[in-house]
Nucleic acid binder design. Structure first.
Lengths: 208, 208
DNA sequence: TTGAATAAATGAACACTGTTCAGTAAGTTT
DNA sequence: AAACTTACTGAACAGTGTTCATTTATTCAA
C-alpha cells in the first residue's frame, strides 16, 4: 500500500508550503513581521499547525537560513571555471560581498542573527552543526591550500588565511547591513566600490 | 528660587536610575530579558514612567550603547603613551578585540544590534548621528594618517586603511559573538589566541 | 459497511511584549 | 484655600511565541 508514502509526501509538501510562505514573508517584510500567526494566516492554517512541522520559530528560521546557503552556493558554481586558485579566491570574495549586498536579509540570517543558531545549540554531538557555514568555510580553506601548494601566498597556514579573508569580508558586509557605515555618507554604489577596492587590498596583502 | 534647578536635577537623577537599572539588567540578563516591565519592577515604578524619560526602548538602548563607547574610550586612554603610530595602531586593535571578548553584550549593542541605530534613523541632519562610532573611527583614521605621514604603511588612503583595519577586527569579534566560529572547536582562550595571531597578520600586511 | 484506531488540525488559553492615555495624586504658586 | 502644574500610574490595546485538550478527518480491521 502506498498510503504511508503519500502521507509522507504530503507531510513534506506541507513543510514546504510553510517554508515557502515564511521565506517570502521574511525576504519581503523582514524578520519582525514574519510571525507565526502571519505565516499561518497566509497559508490559511491555524498557528498551532506550524508547530506540527517545525519545533519552534528558531527551527523554521534555521530551515530558511539553509535556503540562503543554497543560494550562495549556486552563485559560487562559476568559480569552478577559474584555474588560478588566487584568482578564484579573489572572485569568491567578490561573489560573497555581492551576495551580502544583494541579499541582506539572507546574509543577516546566515551570518548575523541569533535565531538559526539557537536551534543547533546544546546538541553539539549531532553530526551536522551549521552545515552551510562549515562547507562554505571548507571551500574557502581548500582554495587557500591550493594557493599555498602553488606558492602564491605569503603564509602557509590555510586556516588562518581563511579566517583572515572571511572576517575581512564579513566585517564590511555586516557593518553595512547593521547600518554602522552611515557616517561615510556614501550611497550603495559608493559602498560597493569602497568594498571592492578594500577587497583588492585585502587579497593583494596576502599575495607572495 | 532653586526649585526648578532641583526639579531638573531630580529629572536627571531619575533618568540615571532607569539607565543604571536597565544597563545592569542588560549586562547580566541580556537584551531579551530586559523588558520595560522588568526595568520598571526593578526600580519600583510603573512601566509608563519610563516613557516620561525615554521616547521608546530604542532610545533607552541608545543611551546604554553610549555607556559602552565610554567604556571603550576609557580602555583606549593608555594608547596616548605610545609614540610610534604603527605600534599605537596595533595596540588599538588589540584593545578593541579584547573589549569585544570581555564585553560581548556592550559590543553587540554598539556594533551589531539594530536597536540603538533605530533611534537615530531618519533624523540625519541632527548634528550628532552615532557620535561614539564616528569618534572611534575618527581616532583610528588619525592614527592611520600619522602612519602615512611617517611613511610606515603601504597605502596612502587613510580612510581605506581604517575601513580595512576596522572591518577585519569587527569581522572576527562579531562572528565570535554571534556564534559563527563554533566549527573551529576552540575554547575562548584558543579563539583569543587565533584572533591575536590573525591581527598581527592583518597589521603586518599594511606595513611598508 | 460500520465501528475502532490513528493522524491532522484547531480554538482557546497562558504568559509575555512595547506602547498609549485618561485619570489620579502630589507639589508649587498665587 | 483654591488654582495650576508636574509626576505618576492602572488599565487597556494590539501584538508575540507556544502549548494542549478537543475536534475533525482519514485509514484500518472486523
Amino acid at each position: 500500500m502506498g498510503i504511508t508514502e503519500r502521507k509522507e509526501r504530503e507531510k513534506l509538501e506541507m513543510r514546504e508550503l510553510i517554508l515557502e510562505a515564511a521565506t517570502s514573508m521574511f525576504l519581503e517584510e523582514g524578520y519582525e513581521k514574519t510571525s507565526i500567526r502571519n505565516i499561518a494566516e497566509k497559508i490559511e492554517y491555524s498557528p498551532a499547525t506550524i508547530y506540527l512541522y517545525f519545533k519552534d520559530k528558531d527551527e523554521l528560521f534555521f530551515a530558511i537560513h539553509e535556503l540562503g546557503f543554497q543560494k550562495l552556493l549556486l552563485e559560487m558554481v562559476p568559480l569552478a571555471q577559474i584555474e588560478d586558485p588566487f584568482q578564484r579566491l579573489r572572485q569568491m570574495a567578490r561573489i560573497y560581498i555581492e551576495f551580502g549586498l544583494n541579499n541582506p536579509e539572507y546574509y543577516d540570517l546566515m551570518f548575523i542573527m541569533r535565531a538559526p543558531m539557537n536551534s543547533i545549540k546544546e546538541q553539539v554531538k549531532a553530526e551536522q552543526c551549521w552545515e552551510g557555514g562549515e562547507s562554505t568555510f571548507g571551500f574557502l580553506t581548500s582554495i587557500m591550500e591550493e594557493c599555498i601548494a602553488k606558492g602564491l601566498v605569503k603564509s602557509d597556514d590555510a586556516m588562518m588565511l581563511s579566517i583572515y579573508a572571511w572576517t575581512c569580508v564579513h566585517g564590511m558586509v555586516s557593518l553595512n547591513i547593521r547600518e554602522r557605515l552611515g557616517m561615510l555618507e556614501m550611497d550603495s554604489d559608493g559602498i560597493k566600490a569602497l568594498m571592492m577596492r578594500t577587497l583588492d587590498m585585502i587579497i593583494d596583502n596576502i599575495r607572495k
